[in-house]
Structure formats: structure tokens, C-alpha cells
Design a protein around this nucleic acid. Structure first.
Lengths: 341, 341
DNA sequence: CTGAAAGCGCTTACAG
DNA sequence: CTGAAAGCGCTTACAG
């Protein structure tokens, strides 16, 4: 039953044909190479019989293609990156590509070494949600000619494909919604981060506040691997700014900690304080009261990502064409941001 | 700046030494091979200068090792599998291994084809949360001598390493807790699945009910890719069994749908109905009221998984030794299962 | 102390 | 219509 692994060589020997012939037949080039139907069938039958599996590594070495894509996200366990990784994988599979993934946890050095590793293993393309300061490392990859698609956040100064959402506009819209509801002292809780998506969200917030000549209350928290730490900083901040009557959380996990903080402080939503969060998940939907959330279109994003990458991988497009795809998010208004009359 | 890719051959030529010598030096075997410090330095310096990166695919082909591990989970976007994948990745990285992952979405055929693909790409080992009927496919992998660790659910009849939790005991404990609190008509909402972990959980439930001569109310739902469908089935079930006063949800996503169902039905927790869920996440912790949950020890599980696999990969242990590691979960009692006096 | 050579399993011009 | 040969980039006995 358990036959020893067969190589293309073994097959060729057994059948007394050249291994090049076997190779052509296996790869469906029998016709093109004008190999006789007879021989083709003999080879195919035997291949079937011994359960021959080509050695993909060897194939990759010979062809220079690995049929794999390197996916670098911040945290595969996160409620944004996890589901999007799943969708990317599904779509990649349809094109015959597999995914090699890794989480950076926001650490630039980790991200760079992952990138190196992926380069060394000859992935055919990269999908990256880059932490700060990865410009140069990614530039090197680009110079080697490998296609890369950046998503979620963009990097200044490097020419590559990008898929993201309308962070600034949708945040502006969300904050205006709060203002319309009568909230006046709106805080913005974000990461201490130069990442573009965070900056854009903050810009949207700032604009809405300025439009109405209100005050800005901004809490910037350093990225922590241990999320428990966020809660205390949010509590401290809210205790310092007691007039704040609404909070916009710029990421899902900041909001999770924020909800814990508000609960611990005994604040009631939305009576004491209104809440909106960027990103959507089960928790926000089912929380009491349900939390108004900005939902990114995971399907459209992942489709944009994989389609762009595939186009670059297969078409060998002219180097300088870079796609920028912006898919709009939607504001899902729930009780947490509705002022009772 | 952008130097063309150097191979070991280019280096050897440039330095006018044999490529074997370069290879030995790069792999730190200079001493062992008694290569002169002088030559070693010359080579190392040049390697540094041109930024040589070894071609890992070629290396793998030559050595037969890929330094990669295939990880097959049910759903990378899930609140159990996502975080555990992250931890596995972190630990694997420390041992110099990278992870190639894929989600099965509970589909056996998908799982088998993933397994095939991973075999063809010569991963050094497998970590699998198998759907039903994968025994044979996994058996074939084992016969090739590749180490595999099964987790979350076990497969009957195949001899391999397994890491899991004490599903039956902890479910029994959780149900007894409900009973102690005075709940008498306890329902068990589970998947229509032969997977061992689901069976074990159900056995724990059944035992607790039998111990007290109560009635069993069991709802078995087929695994759906679209989780929205669960909610209606739970509503229907509860409407048929109006005497049910507590529900045990056997997976996190069943509970998410269950909470939606209860909300839609206007049932109040725990006054109308008590709730316990297998698996822990932010939602359960922050729900109103907080949901009593069984928390699997993600750190211990992932450590068990990766340690076992590494042991098998590196030590080339005698084939027949199979580790079975059971790490106990803990019951986190919260308001959803506490009867008000 | 160092190098020439065979080999890992495949592909693909090239020649007949 | 089919095969011999070189090559992908590395490792590792083996020989000197």
C-alpha cells in the first residue's frame, strides 16, 4: 500500500522513456509536444497507479515560481485581520495559490525578518499590512520585481499597490453623527501610531470637531501586545476629562478595553457617554447597548487585494502601474450613539 | 544599490574558491571543516557586502527539510483558532520554523486537498484540527514518516500525537454548576458532528443530567459556513421546548447566535434562562450579563502542540511513541448562570 | 586545509 | 514524434 515515493525519474525508468517526456505529459503538454496518445495513456495510467505526486519544491526551483503568497498581518487572532485572512486564503486557493502567513504584532523588526524569510522562500507575491518604518525593506522587495499589495495602511514614498478604506471620510461621518445627536465633548482614543489609517481616522475626527468649533480630546496609547494595559489608560484619561460625553475608539481592541473601562467606572452608554468604534464584530453588535460601528467591507477588501496581486503576478504588468483601491466602509448606527430625547 | 541576486556559485567564482567551501562557511561549518580563518573572513565579508541570501527552496531540495510546518485549522477567523494559531506561530518561529496555514471550514474534501498540497511542498510536520473522515488521508501522511499533531479533536483508529482539553469533565462540571444553581431543564446546543470534542462535551452534559434524573434537550445543528443560519434554528428549538430554563452552547459561535436568538425572543438572562458556553472571548466577558464560559488554556495548548511536534521532528523518535496531552480547561463563572436568590 | 563531483527532482531549450 | 543534456541553487560524501 504505502509505496515509496516515486520521482519522475523512477517513472521514466520503469516505462523506459525519457523523463522529459514524462514531465511534458504530466504537465498536460502532450498534445503541444505531439506525443502519441498511446504513450500518453501509458504514462498517465502508471502515474495514477503509483500515486505519483510531483515534488513542488523541485518544480519551484526549476521554474522560479512557488505558487505561494506571503501574507503579513498585524495579528491573525484579531477580529479584523483574522476574517480577512480567511477570505484572502479562500480566494487565493481558487487561483491555485497557497498562503504563507505571519503576524507582526506591530513590531517592525519582526515584520522585516518575516519579509526576509518570505523572500528567501521565493513567494510569488506579498500582501502586507505594514507596521511603521518598513518602507525600505519593502522597497528592496519591489526592486527585485516581486509584486506587493499593501493593505489597511499605506506607506508614503513607495510606489506600490494599495487597498484600503475611506478612513477619513467615514470617521468624519461618524463624528458628525455624534454631533447631530447632541454630543459636544467628543474624545478620540487611538494608538500612538504614525500609521496612515490611524492618521486618517484622526483627521476625520479633527475635521468634524473643527467644523463645529468644539474641543478635541485625544488619547494616544502605545501599541501593547498585552491588551489589558489599555483599560487603565482609558480610565485615567476619562477621569481627567470629566466633561467628555462621547468617545470614538479608533480600533476594535481599543474599544473592547474601553467598554471594560466604562463598565468599571460605572458609566452608562449612551446616557453618560456615547460610543462609536472603528471596525465591527460580534461583541459590538451584541453588546448592551449595541455599539455603533464602522464596518469595513471585508469581502470587497479581500477581493481587491487578491485580484490586484494576481493581476501583477500573472500579467507581468509594466512595473510602474500601481493600483490604489479604496473601498468605502459603512456606518452602522446603533443605540450607543443615540441620544435619548 | 539593487544588486542582482547572488548565488553561492557567483560568490565562489568571484572569490575563486570552490562553492562547497562557500557553502560550509556560510553554514558555520568552517571550523569543523578546518577552513582557515582567513578564507572564512574573506567569504563572510563578501557575503555581507553583496547581501547574499541563500535560496531556501534549493536548500530544502538538497537537504530534504523545509523548516516549515503545515497548520490546518477549521477557521482562522474564529475566536478559538485565530488566537491559538498566533501562539503556535510565535512558538514555531522561536524554533526557526515558519507556518503554512489553511482553513478547512469544516469541509473534509478541502482538508484533504490542503493536506496533499502541504505534502507536496514538503512541510516538515503537520498540525491539524481535522474534520470528520480524515483518518485515511492522515494515515498516509504518517506512513510517509512525517510527524503530525492532532489538536482540538481526536481521530479514532490512527496512532498519532494529540493535544486537547478535558471536554467531558469540564462540561460535566459546568452543567453540575447549573444544576446546583437550581436550573432543571437544561438544553445542550451543539453541532451535528461526530467530532470527538463535541461528543465528549455532550457526554459530559448527558452524565450530569442523568446523575440528577433530569430530561435531556439536545439541539444538533449542521455545520454552516454562514453563521446567520444558526439563530433561527435555536429560536425554533426554544419555542418547541418552552420549559427549558438553561442552555449550554457547545461552541463559541453557537453561543453568539444563541445570544442573538435569546435577545430576539426577549428572554432575559439568567432570569428566564441560564447560559453557559464552551470557549471564551471578549464578547462573553463583556456581555450583559457576562456569560459563564469554559476557557481553554490557549498558551498551554499551543505549547503542548508545538513542543510535541518539535520533539518528533528533531529527535526522530521511535515511530510508535505517541504523546497524548490533555490540558484542563477552567470554568469561569459569571452572572449568566447564577440564579438570583 | 580545500576542491571536484554527484545529487536533490524537476523543466525546457535543443537536436534529431 | 521523442530523447539527451544542461540547469535551477544548494549540500555533502569523497578525495587529496
Amino acid at each position: 500500500m504505502a509505496l515509496k515515493k516515486q520521482s519522475i525519474n523512477d517513472i521514466a525508468k520503469h516505462l523506459k522513456v525519457a523523463k522529459s517526456t514524462v514531465s511534458f505529459i504530466i504537465n498536460g503538454k502532450a498534445e503541444e509536444r505531439r506525443i502519441s496518445k498511446d504513450l500518453e495513456k501509458r504514462v498517465l495510467d502508471y502515474v495514477q497507479e503509483v500515486g505519483f505526486k510531483p515534488h513542488l519544491l523541485a518544480k519551484s526551483l526549476a521554474t522560479g515560481k512557488s505558487n505561494s503568497i506571503g501574507l503579513i498581518v498585524e495579528n491573525i487572532g484579531d477580529s479584523f485581520f483574522g476574517p480577512i485572512a480567511l477570505k484572502i486564503e479562500e480566494k487565493a486557493k481558487k487561483s491555485g495559490y497557497r498562503i504563507v502567513y505571519s503576524s507582526t504584532l506591530g513590531n517592525t523588526e519582526a515584520a522585516i525578518s518575516i519579509l526576509q524569510l518570505f523572500r528567501e522562500t521565493q513567494v510569488d507575491g506579498f500582501i502586507i499590512a505594514p507596521p511603521a518604518n518598513m518602507e525600505q525593506a519593502i522597497q528592496e522587495v519591489l526592486e527585485e520585481g516581486a509584486p506587493v499589495v499593501i493593505f489597511d495602511r499605506i506607506l508614503q514614498g513607495i510606489e506600490t499597490n494599495y487597498v484600503g478604506t475611506n478612513n477619513e471620510e467615514i470617521t468624519y461621518e461618524a463624528c458628525c453623527h455624534l454631533i447631530t445627536q447632541g454630543f459636544k465633548q467628543i474624545a478620540f482614543v487611538t494608538l500612538d501610531s504614525v500609521q496612515s489609517q490611524m492618521q486618517e481616522r484622526q483627521a476625520g475626527y479633527a475635521k468634524s470637531i473643527e467644523d463645529n468649533s468644539y474641543n478635541q480630546y485625544i488619547l494616544e496609547i502605545p501599541y501593547l501586545e498585552d491588551r489589558a494595559g489599555y483599560k487603565q489608560q482609558i480610565i485615567d484619561f476619562l477621569q481627567q476629562h470629566t466633561t467628555v460625553d462621547a468617545v470614538f475608539f479608533a480600533t476594535n481592541y481599543l474599544c473592547v478595553s474601553g467598554l471594560e473601562a466604562l463598565r468599571e467606572m460605572g458609566k452608562s452608554i449612551p446616557d453618560d457617554i456615547g460610543v462609536i468604534v472603528f471596525d465591527e464584530n460580534d461583541l459590538f453588535k451584541l453588546y448592551s447597548p449595541p455599539i455603533t460601528a464602522i464596518a469595513q467591507p471585508l469581502d470587497a477588501l479581500s477581493a481587491g487585494i487578491i485580484d490586484t496581486l494576481m493581476k501583477k503576478i500573472t500579467k507581468k504588468e509594466t512595473r510602474n502601474s500601481c493600483d490604489r483601491i479604496i473601498v468605502p466602509s459603512s456606518l452602522i448606527i446603533r443605540q450607543s450613539s443615540i441620544r435619548k430625547k
